[in-house]
Design a protein around this nucleic acid. Structure first.
Length: 341
DNA sequence: TCTGGGGTCCTAGGACCC
DNA sequence: TCTGGGGTCCTAGGACCC
């Protein structure tokens, strides 16, 4: 997206890193990086300080979420024109109902249209389920045409050669456990009996691995889901025990979360704090609110109470966060509450 | 100079009830 | 006087995703 915004950036030979400059923000991380930076072992999630060591001449560009959201909205608008049902999963990903069959022509045309109208280059995967289509779109990223179609019935065969880490839901921890069982590809995983996977990984996850690895996934798309939680958090550039700093941060976070609750027409039944100490030990504590609320002061007071009860004041804090949970729709609650007022 | 921020889902353990 | 079993709700922690 930065390349769409900044003429010449795509041709810049330097390593380009989307992420705050660690000389200004010592705890920044890399959001994404161009090919020149990746060639030096720089990838998203890496500490920006380490990235700077690996590429002292790198160009750091701070992430501009507002800009990306504008581009995202434009791309999603094109998708909504092209499909009757669009399930937006993140700022840069959506699953769409697709009525143009399992050949690549219409997908190539859609990609060309998105590029022409928004300057954004997208990758598309076509398959019988959102899960397989998502993995197909990942595979499409390394193709020149940026489109991969998985024919109905070919899901398992498409997945089989991929490394287990490519399966959605297998992260670094699960990868290690799975590989320790001698399973390295999704095909290996698909060959294991359900009972073994359930015994190893628990009921829900074992069943998921068994089905997903065979390309069995839900085929329905879901329209807009309402938020289940809204949160804000902040990592300090140096750890702090200063209660004025901490309370001020919580207060700001309460304002921000309350604003977003109001925007979405939701009320919070719970407020929670999150603390991370210098050694990365992380705590969350939540409390039920007397009544569902979108009031910043109420959230802030609840969070401050949780802090007083749970923060070990001898320990400096690296991260503090506030989360509103147990969300309910404000309209619904008003209907219930008004008759008693 | 190691590790952001905003989310979802699952699990385990305890409280509580019958 | 030693201790069942099932169901539900709640809390906290952790894995994962982008």
């Amino acid at each position: 997206m930065e390349a769409a915004e900044r003429p010449g950036l795509a041709e810049d030979p330097r390593p380009v890193i989307i992420g705050r400059d660690p000389r200004q923000a010592p705890r920044a991380i890399v959001t994404t990086a161009n090919d020149a930076a990746r060639a030096l072992g720089i990838h998203s999630g890496l500490s920006a300080a380490i990235a700077l060591k690996r590429a002292p001449n790198a160009l750091f560009l701070p992430p501009r979420r507002d800009v990306y959201e504008r581009y995202s909205a434009r791309v999603m608008a094109v998708l909504r024109e092209a499909s009757p049902l669009v399930e937006q999963n993140s700022i840069d990903e959506a699953a769409c109902a697709w009525s143009h069959g399992f050949e690549s022509g219409a997908a190539l045309a859609l990609r060309a249209r998105i590029l022409a109208e928004t300057k954004i280059s997208v990758s598309l995967g076509i398959a019988t389920s959102a899960l397989v289509a998502k993995m197909a779109s990942e595979a499409a990223k390394s193709r020149t045409d940026h489109v991969v179609v998985v024919q109905p019935g070919e899901e398992a065969a498409f997945l089989a050669p991929l490394p287990v880490r490519a399966l959605v839901g297998i992260g670094p921890k699960a990868e290690r456990r799975v590989v320790a069982l001698g399973i390295t590809t999704i095909g290996d995983l698909a060959a294991r009996p359900l009972e073994e996977l359930v015994a190893q990984f628990g009921r829900a996850y074992g069943r998921y691995l068994h089905e997903a690895s065979r390309g069995i996934a839900e085929t329905e798309l879901h329209a807009e889901r309402t938020s289940k939680s809204i949160s804000a958090e902040h990592t300090f550039s140096t750890d702090t025990t200063d209660r004025h700093v901490l309370w001020a941060e919580l207060h700001d976070q309460a304002e921000e979360v309350a604003g977003r609750l109001k925007q979405e027409g939701l009320l919070a039944g719970h407020v929670a704090i999150k603390l991370r100490y210098a050694n990365w030990q992380t705590f969350t504590r939540q409390v039920r609110l007397p009544q569902p609320t979108d009031d910043a002061e109420t959230l802030s007071r609840g969070a401050a109470m949780l802090m007083r009860r749970n923060w070990d004041r001898t320990r400096a804090i690296r991260l503090i966060g506030l989360r509103a949970g147990k969300l309910v729709e404000a309209d619904h609650v008003r209907q219930l509450v008004l008759p008693f007022e």
